[in-house]
Write a protein that binds this DNA or RNA. Structure first.
Length: 425
DNA sequence: TCTGGGGTCCTAGGACCC
DNA sequence: TCTGGGGTCCTAGGACCC
């Protein structure tokens, strides 16, 4: 396909920006957002980056620095970020006939046929609209392929003087930028490929674009070959309009405090199975078997290590929470060993089947109608009053193992009780 | 004391079949 | 004496993404 124009727009330090929207006092302060269990820094504003806080840095190592430097620290608030993301995508759909939501904070927009000279102004208008309507600052990268649009977005982010927009659709201006970008910054080139490429003298995105595609394939499979073509402006990756049917589904969590009793473990896997059931039903899928795993800390050398997993077959394919809980607990009992401090457990389901497509046993032991009615009722109540309003008793009340979110901001946009208050005086 | 949670795609190699 | 080859399916592991 030639003559295509794509834009990649994404939120700057997206999670941090969401927090800033609802607390203007954070506007000039460094802000970071932590991963699940308050484990690592996964989003940092430029001020936080300037303090030397790295992506993925464990929080306990930077706790003192954050206190001394006045860094605002937040647990992840996925409810809030997901809602802000939906608002941004609603705007994008007004601005392009063809939008691919690529991740929670990134979307590709098809701008083919918009007129090359007007693109820059169009992108700047879009940015300021998103900023005004949602409060989120963004950057826009423009190019003839997804890989080049991503790279243009990277350039826009790193070069403040561009004002948040970079257009690499013109071949002549493009090559100058490509020669200035390290090869590891290219979408699809991770640490392993970067090391191999640098070893043969391919150091920049420009070098990679000039690499023989056959050699790229030999070194990095067909994925690497595609990347070379995309860097040359030949599109190999179409926009995905409808998300493809998902192939697997997992619910895994680190524990807030280590689990040392079987009762605690059974509670935790029941809670994870409950969540798994919600995900399956939302996607119209079911499963005939699930894997359960548990392990001790990978990091604490004083903990005796233990890691185990097993696959449990359900009597028949199902997405009923109670079936999944039973199966998950059976698996957990089978691999449980006393005397360890468990740090994490989870359940993993592959081979998902669209609901109703699985073979039925000749004599169906389940009352399918009753099961569906109960699950639907649970999902409706939980959607209305918040996840976890109704859970199976097996998922526990005390939940000492529960993942930590000790610094989570209010769910400003999705819970009436947590809506921001404004007082005029 | 404290280190995330999801996903996808690709390839090689073995088992099995005719 | 001569001892195939091509196809499919599955799994594990690597690499990458956000």
């Amino acid at each position: 396909m030639t003559g295509r124009i794509l834009a990649l727009i994404d939120g700057n330090s997206f999670y941090c920006s969401c927090e800033r929207v609802f607390d203007p006092k954070l506007a000039t302060r460094p802000v970071i957002v932590l991963s699940n269990n308050d484990g690592c820094a996964v989003a940092r504003t430029s001020e936080a980056k300037a303090l030397g806080i790295r992506m993925g840095e464990p929080f306990f190592k930077i706790r003192d620095l954050c206190r001394d430097e006045g860094v605002a620290v937040f647990s992840s608030n996925y409810t809030l970020y997901g809602d802000m993301s939906a608002r941004m995508n609603a705007i994008y759909r007004d601005w392009s006939p063809d939008v691919e939501v690529y991740s929670i904070d990134e979307s590709f927009l098809d701008l083919t046929g918009f007129g090359r000279r007007d693109l820059d102004a169009y992108a700047r208008d879009l940015r300021s609209t998103v900023r005004q309507w949602t409060g989120i600052p963004t950057c826009v990268g423009i190019g003839p392929t997804k890989t080049l649009a991503k790279l243009a977005n990277h350039v826009a982010k790193k070069n403040g003087e561009l004002g948040g927009v970079c257009d690499l659709s013109d071949e002549r201006t493009r090559s100058a930028w490509l020669d200035r970008i390290e090869v590891g910054e290219v979408w699809g080139i991770g640490g392993a490929s970067e090391a191999k490429l640098v070893a043969i003298g391919v150091r920049t995105a420009g070098d990679l674009s000039r690499l023989d595609p056959r050699l790229a394939r030999k070194m990095m499979t067909v994925v690497g070959e595609r990347t070379v073509h995309e860097l040359r402006g030949i599109s190999c990756m179409p926009l995905e309009h409808v998300p493809p049917q998902r192939k697997g589904c997992a619910v895994t969590r680190s524990f807030g405090t280590p689990v040392t009793t079987l009762a605690g473990m059974l509670e935790a896997v029941a809670a994870y199975a409950t969540r798994a059931g919600e995900k399956l039903r939302r996607h119209g899928l079911e499963t005939a078997h699930l894997a359960v795993f548990m392990h001790t800390s990978e990091f604490n050398p004083r903990d005796r290590p233990y890691s185990a997993a097993t696959t449990v077959h359900l009597p028949e394919a199902s997405n009923d929470t109670l079936d999944l809980v039973r199966a998950a607990q059976r698996g957990a009992r089978a691999i449980w060993r006393d005397g360890f401090r468990y740090a994490k457990a989870g359940i993993v389901m592959n081979d998902l089947i669209p609901t109703g497509r699985a073979p039925r046993p000749l004599f169906d032991a389940r009352d399918r109608e009753q099961s569906d009615a109960l699950m639907t009722a649970m999902d409706v109540v939980n959607a209305r009053f918040g996840r976890g309003t109704i859970v199976p008793a097996a998922a526990g009340i005390k939940r000492e193992w529960q993942t930590k979110f000790e610094m989570r901001s209010p769910r400003y946009t999705t819970r009436v009780a947590e809506i921001p208050r404004v007082s005029a005086g």
